[in-house]
């Protein structure tokens, strides 16, 4: 006998396992993103090693080749600051989710707005870094380090940009007469999952690209 799908309190349907189907879908999507970023990080590590071995700069870290010292192009203090900004955006996002789930709409809206501002600030740091690298002669076609670095961090930045737009759409919808509807908690929580994922990817990128020599 066929059963009608169960409906969660927020109005969304659940899967037969009891989990809300949109949330499960988002987790599956994030799982596929793990594979995507895992491949990009592996590719970066492979080619970073090759660039240093082949001696074609600019280089990510300080190296001495045939007695000539080359300074590393990565600016760790600057990136640490942008990492802090992105970490704080995760805090404001989780507060927005808390607000949405506890019918504290002002808290939710402020949280979403703060997260967007912090996300845009992070993107500003990234644009500044890319421009600085450009001035120092590193671009997508300079060497394999440039190619893999810009592709990896560029894709991450694109994800941040998409996240800002996603949160912006949530914030705009929250000002409508009916707000985000009965599903407010679910909508914001699922958006939060995406945003936190962008943060955890950066946690890995920051360590692997910038901190590990």
């Amino acid at each position: 006998m066929a059963h009608a799908p169960a409906v969660a309190h927020g109005g969304g349907h659940t899967t037969s396992t009891g989990t809300e189907n949109r949330k499960l879908l988002m987790w599956i999507f994030l799982g596929s993103e793990c594979l995507f970023f895992g491949s990009l990080i592996a590719t970066y590590l492979v080619f970073k090693h090759q660039v240093i071995e082949r001696g074609i700069g600019p280089f990510p870290v300080d190296v001495t080749i045939d007695g000539v010292s080359h300074h590393g192009i990565l600016d760790i203090p600057l990136t640490s600051t942008s990492t802090f900004v992105l970490l704080m955006s995760s805090v404001t996002m989780v507060l927005a989710v808390y607000g949405a789930q506890h019918a504290r709409m002002k808290m939710m809206k402020l949280g979403l707005l703060a997260t967007m501002v912090l996300g845009l600030t992070f993107l500003g740091f990234q644009v500044y870094e890319f421009r600085t690298f450009g001035h120092e002669g590193l671009n997508l076609t300079t060497n394999l380090f440039g190619a893999t670095f810009f592709v990896l961090t560029g894709f991450h930045g694109t994800h941040v940009g998409v996240g800002v737009l996603y949160l912006g759409s949530m914030l705009a919808a929250s000002f409508r007469r009916n707000g985000l509807g009965r599903d407010t908690g679910a909508h914001v929580e699922i958006a939060g999952l995406y945003w936190h994922f962008v943060d955890i990817v950066w946690i890995v990128i920051f360590t692997v690209l910038y901190l590990i020599p």
């Binding site: 799908p5 169960a6 927020g10 659940t14 009891g18 970490l87 507060l95 789930q101």
Partner: peptide
Amino acid sequence: MAHSAEPMEQQHGLSPMQYLAIGAGLTLIT
């Protein structure tokens, strides 16, 4: 029969202050 729905608007047990404390911990680790 489908399992009982897991309410999306459930309370996950942490307060805003606890989230802020976790944020401070993450900053410290950084």
